[in-house]
Write a protein that binds this DNA or RNA. Structure first.
Lengths: 336, 336
DNA sequence: TTGAAAGCGCTAACAT
DNA sequence: ATGTTAGCGCTTTCAA
């Protein structure tokens, strides 16, 4: 015997007022007398009434739902980020409709369309790309999109990242200063702007220090591929590397495991390793990883802020927000 | 110049048919002639029309949205589970409205109510408890609830877990068989059924083997608390423990780090460590953790299945689904 | 198979 | 400050 949830009509009838009155009581900044408010609230709580968000959205034209698309949930950076994002949005009265994207960009559009069917007020793409078709469609529909931890070169779309180029440069400078001369790089997925920027910054930094990159392998931001990258890098004959910069912490852990357990190397005595992100595990004594800290909380705040700004003011031009990141020096790096 | 998304009326006018006709074309199992379907679809795609899910929900009474509440996102078990859950639900045509619960159970109800405002068709609580008030309210409103990886003793509510008692027992048996005689336990948050069941099973298993628990500390399912638990356990004077069973992998890693780096102990030579969950990191050579594998995918499938069953048939009685779990023996355990 | 009419639950002018 | 009216975009009887 499923008893349906009370409607505003029932509350109105019980109190003997109009449905508009009930509506106003539950609407921010509407004008109602205190006694009306009290009587309505009382009846509402007796009946267990709460406004139907869907019906409200249908008429106000905004759902207070933000679509969030995530791909790399196995990288610890993202659970952290999701938590922060969801927290920020909640504080602002928004909710998160989440979707796990396939890493292959093909199907993302389909899924995005499904999300759009729910009249989301905005869209956050965490390390996910969308077609320029869909970007355009969102623009036309007036739905702001923010790219989180990724930029999309050609597309004229808002993004929030840290300054990955500067981060890469800092790593190069640190390695040079600490006497490393034979450094290699483990790349992430080549299509990712974060990967590209970190590498570009790293190479530029090395060049400034009079060094060149001596070895490169692709780890695709995945554990297994990163392991293989480490093996490939170290099996190249005649090379005596003294440092590896890995495009993110997630892969750096995999690389360190291979160096230690398969190749019997000591870190940092035989080799320094540097990562990127500063996920919590990087601080664990087992890894004690020197890395570049991305300001997750600030990035989340900036994402929520710009998204909501654009929701309020759809004419606003896309911005590219780039936050400073900080080198965190730990035991995986040794001066030589 | 924000161009609004096309409505069914516009499509209807363009084709010269009624809005009902358009609706039928986009409704499963409605009767439309092939030529009607084709003309409407053509016009729809030209105008970029897709049915408004909110308006549809308002009238059909189901939103195809499932509310998902999660608390412990820093435990790697959950990102995995979320991924699996979201995947399962997507396959069945549902979407996930996500919320991060505060670990303090107080505010969960508030948040749940917000989710309910969106007329979700069902609710999944991952390691989160709700008040019996709200449980009752959901029952009355006909909204099925499934507890994922947690049971709620008094409450008559559906849950999906692995057989934590059996898991704990297996651990005890294994430790006994491999000659451990002085075993301690690091507990999770005491309010959690998983914690309680694992400990109960473990104690029962020890008793069957003629052993008793020799030391216990509470790690609350948190890294820092687990570290402290390890310190407390090992600093008890006169004790020569040979094994620690930790209530989940997430804490086990923290415990291992303390044993190795603060206390200078070797695992498993000086001490065996066993965890619970079998998160991906457990297989990494650094930890190589003996643990009890929870069947994440099966649990997710079971959760999605029962939830959707109950959505279709709201009269169905709550069930308590308990899936077998499997002991995974790795290097952190040594026969003595 | 198709169209006309009614209404899901709510809010937003417009009066009063 | 409150009630009346209209309508958000859609689906669903009911007739034809």
């Amino acid at each position: 015997m499923t008893q349906p949830i009370a409607t505003s009509r029932e509350v109105a009838e019980r109190v003997g007022v109009s449905r508009s009155a009930v509506s106003r009581v539950f609407t921010q900044g509407a004008s109602v007398s205190p006694q009306m408010a009290e009587r309505v609230r009382k009846a509402a709580s007796e009946l267990g009434y709460r406004p139907n968000a869907l019906a409200r959205s249908l008429i106000t034209g905004n759902s207070r739902i933000i679509g969030l698309v995530v791909a790399y949930l196995d990288n610890f950076f993202y659970p952290q980020a999701i938590k922060a994002l969801s927290h920020q949005l909640k504080q602002r009265g928004y909710h998160v409709l989440m979707f796990m994207a396939p890493k292959t960009a093909g199907d993302v559009d389909d899924v995005l369309r499904e999300i759009l069917d729910y009249q989301v007020d905005g869209l956050i793409l965490a390390s996910v790309a969308m077609s320029s078709d869909l970007t355009e469609q969102c623009r036309q529909a007036g739905i702001p999109v923010v790219l989180f931890n990724r930029t999309q070169p050609g597309a004229n779309v808002t993004s929030v990242t840290s300054d990955n180029v500067a981060g890469g440069k800092q790593v190069a400078r640190l390695l040079a200063e600490t006497g490393h001369r034979n450094v290699a790089y483990v790349a992430g997925w080549e299509g990712a702007s974060t990967q590209q920027d970190r590498e570009a910054g790293f190479r530029a930094g090395l060049a400034q220090a009079g060094l060149t990159l001596n070895g490169r392998a692709v780890g695709n931001f995945e554990t297994e591929a990163a392991r293989q990258a480490a093996r490939d890098l170290m099996s190249a004959p005649g090379n005596r590397r003294d440092a590896i910069f890995v495009a993110n912490d997630h892969m750096a852990f995999a690389v360190m495991d291979v160096l230690r357990f398969e190749l019997g190397l000591r870190i940092p005595e035989d080799l320094s390793v540097i990562g990127f992100d500063d996920v919590p595990m990087a601080a664990w004594p087992t890894y004690d990883l020197t890395t570049v800290r991305q300001p997750t909380d600030q990035m989340s705040i900036a994402t929520a802020d710009t998204l909501l700004t654009q929701i309020k003011d759809p004419i606003a031009a896309p911005t590219r927000i780039e936050l400073a990141c900080e080198l965190i020096r730990r035991g995986s790096l040794r001066a030589r």
